[in-house]
């Protein structure tokens, strides 16, 4: 994407135009749409890569334990090639890989894409727990409006790239126009 106007700041620092590798080192973890799994590496290797930019490698063992606590299925399959996981498991792996950075901000791009409703619910439950328990800020982009509003504290509604409504999620949920157009009741 080409920046045409405005700026992007994180923690009072200008980050637009900086190399991705440097932005990651500020503590921003990005779970891309399509998950970005290293399909030929094992689950454990994927997670090790998530922690690549960290300097405090001493705490890694504890973080692996914590991740396998959130995602028991990843613990069971840690020696398996990541490409052999199901779509839902790969999405969990993508979130887990991002958490291995111990980020201050977690960016999630359409985590529900192509997943069964039950799996989506499970992933959102974990994201909520991470947000509350680990005190990680989450920026979620999601077309699944009802689920997103349930999870978020604050929401922005974008139409063709422009913010048309923004406010606390509870307020957006009550907005008649949004309810009719996006929530379907």
């Amino acid at each position: 994407m080409v920046r045409t106007a405005g700026e992007i700041r994180f923690d009072a620092q200008q980050i637009a135009g900086r190399p991705t590798e440097d932005i990651v080192r500020l503590g921003i973890a990005h779970v891309p749409e399509g998950r970005g799994t290293f399909t030929q590496l094992t689950v454990e290797e994927n997670l090790r890569l998530g922690a690549y930019a960290r300097r405090d490698t001493g705490a890694l063992a504890r973080d692996f334990a914590r991740i396998y606590d959130y995602f028991p299925v990843l613990g069971e399959r840690r020696r398996q090639i990541a490409g052999s996981l199901s779509g839902g498991e790969q999405q969990m792996l993508a979130v887990a890989r991002a958490l291995m950075l111990r980020p201050r901000l977690l960016l999630l791009d359409e985590p529900s894409l192509g997943l069964a409703p039950l799996v989506v619910r499970e992933i959102f439950r974990i994201v909520r727990a991470i947000n509350r328990e680990e005190r990680v800020s989450v920026l979620l982009v999601e077309q699944n409006v009802a689920t997103a509003l349930d999870l978020a504290d604050h929401a922005y509604l974008l139409e063709t790239g422009r913010v048309v409504v923004s406010g606390p999620s509870a307020e957006l949920r009550r907005d008649d126009a949004i309810r009719r157009s996006y929530l379907g009741y």
Binding site: V24, A29, H30, P32, L49, A53
Partner: peptide, 8 residues
Amino acid sequence: VSSRLCGI
């Protein structure tokens, strides 16, 4: 692409 997102 994913590697850059990991800071590599």
